[in-house]
Amino acid sequence: MRTLFKHTLALLVLAIAGGLFTPSLLAADSVAVIAHRSVPEQELNKTKLLDIYTGDVKRWSDGKPVVVIDLKPAGEVKETFYKYLGKSPSRMKSVWLKRMLSGEGDPPLTVESETEMVKRVAATPGAIGFVSSEAVNDTVKTLAIIEHESGGKK
């Protein structure tokens, strides 16, 4: 049942993409923004996501604090995500450093892998993170899907 859903979704995306890509390639290219299931928001636009990651927005719409989680190892997923936000990881770190120094908050928690990311998000109320679409499961909710900018695997 789950695989059937997965395949249906993949086929749907495939249809939208114009039948150019295989499902596996497509899965590797898109990044999912995930959150703890208790998070009231159903979806997030780019501005909102950026505000959350820079620390400008610290609470969800229900007033519960946001817990930002960053993926530590550099890679395609991280690159795609930060490119979408319009800030490189290092630049984002500058922002966080500034916040930290001015006492506005600590830098995000970090995880070492996508699996850990999913586990951590599922386990932490108010948590938000990002993984490749492939790694998403029912333990978390997806707030946005970010397509790889170049639109295909090189």
């Binding site: 290092s90 770190k93 966080w96 450093l97 830098p107």
Partner: peptide
């Protein structure tokens, strides 16, 4: 850029 990224990461710990 990579090294600067890492330096800032270290800076978190430092601060």
């Amino acid at each position: 850029d990579q090294k600067w990224d890492r330096y800032q990461e270290l800076s978190f710990t430092f601060f």
